[in-house]
Design a binder for these strands. Sequence first.
DNA 1: GATAAAGTTTACGTAAACGTAAAGTATTTT
DNA 2: AAAATACTTTACGTTTACGTAAACTTTATC
Lengths: 146, 146
Amino acid sequence: MDIKKTYSISELAKEFDVTTRSVRFYEDQGLLHPTRRGQTRIFSSKDRVRLKLILRGKRMGFSLSETKELFDLWDETLSGNEKQLLLMLNTLANKRAQLEQQKNDIAQAEMEMDTAEARCREALAELQKKKLQQAKAEKEEPVEQK
Amino acid sequence: MDIKKTYSISELAKEFDVTTRSVRFYEDQGLLHPTRRGQTRIFSSKDRVRLKLILRGKRMGFSLSETKELFDLWDETLSGNEKQLLLMLNTLANKRAQLEQQKNDIAQAEMEMDTAEARCREALAELQKKKLQQAKAEKEEPVEQK
DNA sequence: GATAAAGTTTACGTAAACGTAAAGTATTTT
DNA sequence: AAAATACTTTACGTTTACGTAAACTTTATC
């Protein structure tokens, strides 16, 4: 089995560095499904995993509703219906294409950052050279100021 | 030199598949700086490049203001001031760290998609097996319906 | 010279993803 | 039992990134 533990809202919030407001919002949007003891939320380790996925999705530029669609789709997939299984495979293929695009974007960005950095270093080297020249000049022909 | 051409707002909008509204908005936010002929906007090839960068930034999860900061910073960097150069190098390092995080996220996502896909295919194979068994059974002991 | 096509400004509307009180309940600590 | 702590719901506010409509010029076409 899993870690089997349960979590309070503030435990999760602290662990993933989000506000409790956000966690409640994610529940509101149907992304998390805590049970209740009285009116207090109790989160399962499944919820914990999903929260992690939500946040990673965000870092990857996914909206909450996109992530929710994936969650829902996966839940239905687990029912084992053939149509759902095919739909899931299809969706996975689409997401893969998206990730490919992102990888291209990142590679491009990295290349451009390389050339930008190189230019910066060149410019800095220029400045250093000038400084040295000036220092030398002052040594041979000192300039006093008073 | 560059391609040296100029562009109308709708040319750019069509090429990058955005609305003119968006392009005007990007100008409003200080990301693009078209000149004017009368009151009509004329975009340079520099603007064109920046638009491309804006859109790539978006796909990578950057906000418009983040992108603007980079643009502004780069412009000031070109002035050759030492402090600006160092600041730029610093910023570049930060961005690189961000990209590393994104690459990790993508790699993780790809792994999970692999296992998800594998499960789907297993489940589908199960279904096929059942179908075959059933067809066989019906052949040996046909079931008529009328 | 009327009309269509492409451009403009102004301005209100909207969806997403929370922030931020306000006001109340439940539990634990002192 | 009083106070502090952690949780709750309700609800209005805010930022980002545009959409959409209205009303108006400018230029090209019939």
